[in-house]
Amino acid sequence: MTTPIVDMRNIKKHFGHVIALNGVSFDVRAGECHCLLGDNGAGKSTFIKTMSGVFRPSEGEMRVEGKPVIFESPRDAMTAGIATVYQDLAMIPLMSVSRNFWMGREPEKGIWPLRTLDLAKADAITMTEMRKMGINLRGPDQAVGTLSGGERQTVAIARAVYFGAKVLILDEPTSALGVRQTANVLGTIDRVRKQGIGVVFITHNVRHAMAVGDRFTVLNRGQTLGTALRGEVDAPGLQDMMAGGQELADLEGSLGGTI
């Protein structure tokens, strides 16, 4: 197989005396959707935040296209082509779709000190990109706050894809959505994957994962319980892996927490 775009090996992350991640290995290749499953508090968000440069791992190694890297900030990860759509979306509801789309990477024109936003370009590209994702905006100046949850997800995904993401990390994009909006977002994930982008899809919903996933990794109490290929595992199997870990944790808890 090809080298993974991002390869995380034996990642550990401690917050003071809390061990959030205790040796997690995970990789993602171009054009695949790798699902990261786990119950609430399993460490999914913590893990992808180390992947996207928000946290620095306490231990472990990260490689991007085979080369070891250390991300000092989310900017470094973005430069390396790792884009993240956080659970809280990083969208500002009061601002327009276009301004949100370009936030932090605004196109400019003119010469300093009179450099201004290239609003015409920004608006036109925003409208095109949103249409590609199947969202018809009233106008580029429509506020994000007027969009539904699923549409907001799609704006965030469209933004990441447009800015040349090689890996797209989605943190529980479907957890707050209704049935139809979930279907839309899953459709978007499929479309993005077909463009050759590696997708990391975080969820605790096994059915959502089974719908689009190529590989599945289950995270529990900061550890991986293994990675399975599509076809090697079915929904009840994954469910068992998530729940089994929970039972194990309960057992360990009753034995006096000697982890």
């Binding site: 973005m78 993240t84 956080y86 990083a90 969208m91 936030m103 605004e106």
Partner: peptide, 19 residues
């Protein structure tokens, strides 16, 4: 100006995208 709006709208969201 866009950064001014972003900083007040949601500072954390703005930081995530490098503002």
């Amino acid at each position: 100006g866009n950064w001014v709006f972003a900083s007040g709208g949601d500072a954390q969201a703005a930081r995530y995208v490098g503002v």
